[in-house]
Amino acid sequence: MGTEPEQSPSPDAVALAFRLALDAARAFVGATAPNPPVGCAILEASGNVLAVAAHQRAGTSHSEALAIAECRAKGLGGAIHTIVVTLEPCNHFGRTPPCSEAILSTTAKAVWIGAADPNPAVVGGGAERLRAAGLTVRSIGALDPSLAASAQRLVEPFAKRMLTGLPWVTVKQAVDGSGAMIPPRGQKTFTSQDSLKLAHELRRRADAVLTGSGTILADAPEFTVRHVPDFVSRNRHLAILDRRRRVSTNYIDAATARGFRVLLPHSLADALHQLGEAGALEVLVEAGPLLTESVLVSPFWDEHVRITADKDGPDRVEVLSQPHSFALTERS
C-alpha cells in the first residue's frame, strides 16, 4: 500500500492567509522606517490560520518572529506547517536575528513569499537559506499575480531607497473645477471631508512632508495627522524649500514642538538625498502650484495623487504613477 500524501493548505487557504498578512502590514505603513512594512500569517496543515502579525516599528520583532511567538504562546507551535509572508524573510543579523532562522526553528514545511528582498547589501537571500534546509519555497505570484503585485507595491518605497538612496515621493495636489490650487479667500481647502481624510491618510503613511516657503507664509499649515488616527509618538521630517529664508524661526520652533525634525535643504534634490540618508521611505509633497509643478516635471516623483473638487458630487481622485528606473523581481 502507498503512503497517504501529506496534507497541505489549499491554494484558497494560502491566498486568504496572504490577504490577511497584507492587511496586517498595511496597518503599519508609515511606522516602520527605515524598515519596510511586512505581514506574516501562519497556517496549520489543514489550512486554518494560526496567527497573523506585522512588523510595527524599527528595532522591534519582525512579522515572522511575532507570528511564531503568538503560535507558541497559544500552545500551537507544533502545528505550524505553512508560513506566508509579504516580503522575503531576512537572512542576516541586524537589530534582530534572521527571520530565516526563526522559521527553521519551527515545524514549518512550506513558505510562500510575496516580494523578494530588494536590499543589495544582503548577502544570501532568505529564500535560498530556507530551500537549502529542505523547505518548499514558492512565490505567491505563481498562485495569484494580483497578490504579488500588492506585495510589491507595499515594499516599493523601501526598494527605491535601497536601490537609489532616495525616498518614494508622493505628490498630493488638490484643485478646483478649473484646475486652480488656490482656495477661496478665507478658506484653507475647497475639497470634501472624504478628500481631507485621504490627505491625512497620505500624511500618516509618510515619513516626511516636503513643502515650500510660499505655502507656509500663506497659511502656516501644521502638517499634522488629525482626521485619521496617527501612530503613537510618531515624529516626521518637515523639509522646507526656502532659499530666501523667509520662514520665521517662530514657525520652525512651533513645528519642532509638534514633533517635526525640520530641514532647510538647498534644493529638491538636496532635500530628497538628506531624507533618504535619514532613513525616510516616503515623502509627501504638500506645496503650492510652483513647487508642485517643479516636482512633477522632475524625475524624482513616483506617485501623483490629484484630487479635483466637485461642487455637485464626490471629488474625483486620480492616482498617476511614474515609470520606475528600478525593478522588483519575484523569487519563484
Rank of each mutant, 00 (worst) to 15 (best):
E6L: 15
L202Y: 09
F231T: 05
F190H: 13
A239E: 09
R261M: 10
V175F: 02
N250H: 14
N250K: 08
I240F: 07
T249E: 15
V137Q: 01
S213Y: 10
A199V: 14
D207E: 10
K197R: 15
L16M: 08
P118V: 09
V247C: 05
D194A: 15
V225I: 12
L281R: 00
R246D: 10
A218Y: 13
L163I: 10
K160W: 01
S63R: 02
S267M: 03
A208P: 03
A21L: 02
R129I: 03
R245G: 12
D315K: 03
A108D: 08
L198D: 03
Q322F: 04
F260E: 00
I42E: 01
T32M: 04
M1W: 13
P37R: 01
A21E: 04
A287M: 07
I42A: 00
P299D: 03
A115W: 04
I42C: 01
P118A: 11
E201M: 12
A24G: 07
R244S: 15
R204F: 11
P98C: 02
G2A: 15
A151I: 03
I182T: 15
T308R: 15
E70T: 14
V123R: 14
P323G: 09
N119I: 00
C99D: 08
Q7T: 15
D310N: 15
A278N: 06
L217G: 02
H324G: 04
F93Q: 11
A67T: 02
G125E: 11
V38S: 05
P229Y: 06
K188H: 09
T32E: 00
V52P: 02
Q187F: 12
Q56S: 03
G39W: 02
P157E: 08
A51K: 07
V305I: 12
W301N: 07
A110I: 06
A41V: 00
K188W: 06
I307G: 07
A257Q: 11
E101P: 01
T86N: 04
R245C: 13
K197Q: 12
G214W: 01
